[in-house]
Design a protein around this nucleic acid. Structure first.
Length: 252
DNA sequence: GGTTCTCTGCCGC
DNA sequence: GCGGCAGAGAACC
C-alpha cells in the first residue's frame, strides 16, 4: 500500500497525511513500514522453512534487495540469523553495585539489556519476560568481566563504556537511542532538545516514550534526559537512581 | 537508462 | 490546520 492509498483512507491529502504521520509517530510512513517489515522478518526467520519463505511472508518482494539490506536489518547474513535465532543465545548474570542489583544480558551480537533494581530475582523475571529463551551465564569468566565493567561504569561514569550493543527497536527508537549516546557525560538534554536533534522537533513525547523503552541502562544514557525546566522527570529504574547517576557524572 | 515514489520546503487559503 | 506545487533524491524496473 502506497502513500496515496493510505492518505485516501485517512481522508487527507497525501502531503498532509505524511505531515501528520510524521508528527505523531516521529518517522515517515515509509520508514515506519520498513521498520515493521524488518521486525516481521526477524520474527519469521527463526521459525521459517526457508529464508525465502520468511522474506516473502514479511513483505519483501525481491530477494536481491533483501540480501542487500540484510546487514543493516539483521546485522548478519539471513541464513546466519536464522540459525542463530533458533535458540537465541542470550545469557545473563547479575552483579551488585552501590545503586542496587544490576543485570547484564548479552546476545552473540552484544549487550542487549542492562536492568537495575533492588531485587535480583525480580530483574531476572523481568528479563525472562522480554527474552524468554535467555539462560544464566553461570561461571563464565568472560561474562563476569562484562558485568564487572558495567558495574564499573555505574560507579565511575567518566570511564565510559565502549561495548557492542544489540539493541533492537523501530527506526525512530534507534535514532533516539543514538542521540542519547551522543550526550556527553556530565551533561543533560531535554526531551524536546533530543527531538530537535533527530530532526523531529514536535516529537518530544515520542522521544520520552523511546527513552522509557530503553532496555540498556547507563550504556544508553536515558538518565541524561530531563524536563525543559530541569526537573528529573521519570526513570524506568527509579528516579533516585537517575538522580544518583547524574550527581556522579556532574561531580567526578 | 527512464520512471515512479517518497519526502520536504514554500506558499497560499 | 490544510492542500497544491515543485524539486531533490531514492527506489524501482
Amino acid at each position: 500500500m502506497g502513500l496515496d492509498e493510505l492518505a485516501r483512507q485517512a481522508e487527507l491529502s497525501p502531503h498532509h497525511f505524511h505531515r501528520m504521520f510524521k508528527a505523531i509517530t516521529g518517522v515517515t510512513p515509509k520508514a515506519y513500514a520498513n521498520a515493521h517489515r524488518a521486525d516481521r522478518v526477524r520474527k519469521a526467520l527463526p521459525r521459517s522453512f526457508s529464508v525465502t519463505d520468511a522474506m516473502y511472508d514479511a513483505g519483501y518482494n525481491s530477494s536481491g534487495r533483501f540480501y542487500a539490506e540484510s546487514d543493516a536489518v539483521l546485522g548478519m547474513r539471513p541464513a546466519a540469523f536464522r540459525a542463530g535465532g533458533r535458540d537465541a543465545a542470550i545469557r545473563f548474570a547479575v552483579g551488585e553495585s552501590s545503586l542496587g542489583a544490576i543485570l547484564v544480558a548479552a546476545s552473540e551480537r552484544g549487550v542487549c539489556a542492562i536492568l537495575m533494581g533492588d531485587d535480583p530475582d525480580a530483574l531476572a523475571r523481568d528479563l525472562q519476560d522480554q527474552f524468554p529463551c535467555a539462560s544464566v551465564a553461570g561461571g563464565d569468566p568472560a561474562f563476569e568481566q562484562l558485568v564487572a565493567r558495567v558495574v564499573g561504569l555505574v560507579e565511575a561514569p567518566r570511564i565510559g563504556l565502549d561495548l557492542p550493543l544489540d539493541v533492537r527497536g523501530t527506526a525512530f527508537q534507534q535514532r533516539v537511542w543514538q542521540a542519547l549516546r551522543e550526550i556527553p557525560t556530565g551533561e543533560t538534554a531535554s526531551y524536546s532538545a533530543i527531538a530537535a536533534r533527530i530532526g523531529a522537533p514536535k516529537s518530544a513525547r515520542a522521544v520520552a516514550q523511546a527513552c522509557a523503552l530503553n532496555r540498556v541502562a547507563v550504556a544508553i544514557p536515558c538518565h541524561r534526559v530531563v524536563r525543559n525546566d530541569g526537573a528529573l522527570s521519570g526513570y524506568r529504574w527509579g528516579v533516585e537512581r537517575k538522580r544518583a547517576l547524574l550527581d556522579r557524572e556532574a561531580h567526578d
